[in-house]
Amino acid sequence: MPSAHPYVQAVTDRRLVDLAPDPPVPGATDGRWWPPVALTAPWIDDNAPRLDVLHVHFGLESSAPDDLVAALTAARERGLAVVYTVHDLDNPQLTDQSPYLALLDVIIPAADRLVTLTADAASEVERRWGRTCEVLPHPLLTADSGESGVPAPSDPAPRRVGLHLRDLRPNIDAAAAVAVAVAAADLLTTAGTRVLFDILLNERARDADLAARLQAIAASHPSVQLRRTPRMTDAAVEAWLAGLDLFVLPYRHGTHSGWVELCFDLGVPVAGTPVGHIAAQHPSSFATLDLDDPSTIVDAVERARAARQAADRPTARRERRRARMRERDEVRAAHAALYRGAMEDVARARRAGELLRVGEGRR
């Protein structure tokens, strides 16, 4: 869960795994899965007879620790295997990480199997909790991986640099990002490099005063534009990214990023702050930047167009697409094998009378 999430759909081979739909959320619009009803003890008790595995991906922050303990205890008592994919060791929706850490301290020791996206994240889990994760890379999500649609930018068009500030969620350092974009734009234009920083911000933002300040900062340079947009569809996001030379991730904290995966599939280089394990997802197309040093963005911009054009060559697109399709097949098969193994472990433990209490942990 959540079964409707694009990542969950991507890692599931529907020929081998029957993915239960997300239960409706009381009072929510159709299609909204959060807060996840499937991660509650009553739902698990009611639905356990038709389930074998509870796989938790996202939405953990919607639970209180006691409620999470109750849900995992219900799964354990009903004989369900519990799998947890450690996407986030720091939650991007939160500033104070202590409530989220309390939840990780419940689910990471309790899960039968753990998965994460990078070896670096697996090492952190091992160091902090003494648990071993299976490392399975983030699979292909894009519809065409750059096979069609918007071509890569070319000379003499301005270098196009994209930033998406979303709804100003806590892990995005929006003020520093816009300020450094203005400073980098000034350095680039002074050096004779034409550039356009295209900064997107959702119409519905968490902080209206900050949104207004960001617009004022962006307006101070003609090569920086800040656009307020409705929530974009996946297709619209892909089309926008495909028209960029460089995408910038101005994160304060984080662990992994779906943006990095989308950009890799579209051949768009990424420059981001050195937080979490984002750089380990696709190191060959990731440049580290410092939001206090505009020269780091300047350097990334200067290198980006050649890299972008090379990635957009038809042979490069085809090879990248084939490799990512093979990888997705391997990730799906690995998940199906993971579920079988977790189910066998739980069945063996139950036969031996080794039903562990939530919180005891296991290797």
Rank of each mutant, 00 (worst) to 15 (best):
P153S: 01
P153F: 02
S154R: 14
D155N: 11
D155L: 14
D155T: 10
P156D: 02
P156T: 01
P156H: 05
P156M: 07
P156W: 03
A157P: 03
A157R: 08
P158N: 11
R159L: 15
R160V: 09
V161D: 01
G162I: 07
L163R: 02
L163C: 09
L163V: 08
L163P: 02
L163W: 01
H164P: 00
H164C: 08
H164Y: 12
L165D: 01
L165Y: 03
L165G: 00
R166T: 12
R166L: 15
D167E: 05
L168T: 07
R169S: 11
R169Q: 13
P170A: 14
N171E: 08
N171Y: 11
N171V: 03
N171P: 01
I172F: 00
D173R: 05
D173G: 04
A174R: 06
A174G: 09
A175H: 14
A176Q: 12
A177N: 03
A177V: 00
V178W: 05
V178K: 07
V178C: 14
A179N: 09
A179G: 14
A179P: 10
A179F: 06
A181Q: 00
A181P: 06
A183W: 12
A183D: 15
A183Q: 15
A184P: 05
A185W: 00
D186E: 09
L187E: 14
L188S: 07
L188A: 04
T189E: 15
T189A: 13
T190C: 07
T190N: 09
A191C: 10
G192A: 10
T193Y: 15
T193D: 14
R194C: 02
L196V: 07
L196M: 05
L196F: 02
L196Y: 02
L196D: 02
F197Y: 13
F197H: 04
I199G: 00
L200E: 04
L200Y: 10
L201Q: 10
N202Q: 13
N202G: 12
E203M: 04
R204F: 06
R206H: 12
D207E: 10
A208E: 13
D209E: 14
A211K: 05
A211R: 09
R213S: 11
R213Q: 10
L214T: 01
Q215I: 03
Q215E: 06
A216I: 11
A216L: 13
I217Y: 08
I217N: 06
I217F: 09
I217G: 02
